[in-house]
């Protein structure tokens, strides 16, 4: 991560070159910076500003003529039973989705890392769902989850189980969406974990095996600690994904039944659709805060454990 490369060190005393470099660098950065300011930074700040106003759809042509309402939107959000519900749902998506996705990805990665043949083929196969559209696979899974004639209940029927209506139940719908999301998402983590596993020197593992350590002991005391930075990174990016859960619920359940699958992003989208722009902006900002907080907590938590860990 050295930002000063040897070349720049050597030319440091030549002033005109440095000037030229700076001019060239900013010229090269200009398109990105412009797009960033207009389409990212601007909207992020505008969203914060909007969240303190009563802006509605009717103000769209005159966005600066809205009334400031202070923290009203936030106060209202905290008191809104639906917002509480979607916050809880979003937490459930996070708490079910992240561990499940990581566990599946780790299992598959350890397995593929161990095989001598077909590892490339297996990796590509397991990665397939990741490249596909969430909307499209949600349509497919909605069909698989059908009560009568769906794939799941047909297979369950073979062993005599009368499968439930997965997406019609307020308790089962959310876990069912998570299951699909795990299937759709674990491939990314699998590839990242595989890259992490390959940095673990095989000698350590072999030495432990010679010493009689069981497979589980080696996994627990060698693989896991050495993989900790990779796991941390994986947890963060997976968590960010589940916090923004939306498309699956939009297509498969429309947020139902009884809002049991509606997420915070879905809520924001709904409020936008109702024309409550200020309210939607406030909701999105609370979600943004959660994103920042989650990243911070996960780096803190896993970072500390890394220091306490035996390795390095």
């Amino acid at each position: 991560m050295s930002t000063i490369s040897p070349s720049t060190d050597r030319v440091r005393h030549v002033d005109p070159t440095r000037r030229q470099q700076a001019v060239a660098a900013w010229a090269l950065a200009l398109p990105f910076v412009l797009l960033f300011v207009v389409f990212s930074l601007g909207p992020v700040l505008a969203s914060l500003g909007m969240s303190f106003t009563d802006m509605r759809r009717t103000d769209i042509r005159d966005p600066f003529a809205v009334n400031p309402v202070g923290l009203d939107n936030y106060v209202q959000l905290v008191q809104d039973p639906l917002f509480r519900k979607v916050t809880l749902n979003t937490l459930l998506y996070l708490l079910l989705g992240v561990p499940a996705t990581m566990a599946v990805a780790l299992l598959v990665a350890v397995g593929i890392n161990r095989v001598e043949r077909f590892s490339g083929f297996l990796r590509v196969g397991y990665y397939l769902p990741v490249v596909t559209s969430i909307v499209a696979v949600s349509v497919v899974w909605k069909f698989l989850y059908r009560d009568n004639g769906g794939l799941f209940n047909t297979v369950l029927g073979w062993v005599g189980i009368d499968g439930p209506g997965w997406l019609d139940s307020t308790t089962l719908a959310l876990p069912s969406l998570v299951l699909m999301a795990v299937w759709r998402n674990f491939g990314t983590l699998m590839v990242i974990f595989l890259a992490g596993l390959q940095t673990i020197p095989q000698e350590v593992d072999e030495a432990a095996e010679v010493d009689g350590a069981s497979g589980w002991a080696r996994f627990r005391h060698i693989t896991l600690p050495m993989l900790r930075p990779t796991l941390l990174f994986g947890a963060v990016i997976t968590g960010l994904g589940y916090l923004q859960f939306f498309e699956e619920a939009f297509v498969m359940t429309k947020g139902g039944p009884l809002d049991s699958t509606r997420s915070a992003t879905y809520f924001t989208f709904d409020q936008f659709g109702f024309g409550n722009y200020g309210y939607a902006a406030a909701a999105s900002y609370l979600l943004f805060l959660a994103v920042v907080l989650l990243t911070w907590v996960q780096f803190r938590w896993l970072g500390e454990r890394d220091e306490k860990g035996a390795t390095r």
Partner: peptide, 23 residues
């Protein structure tokens, strides 16, 4: 900034972006 931008969820920007693109 580049790394920070990686963390901005699309849901935070879409309402003001819609106002902007409309105008």
């Amino acid at each position: 900034i580049v790394l920070g931008t990686l963390m901005i969820p699309g849901v935070v920007t879409f309402v003001p972006l819609f106002v902007l693109t409309t105008n």
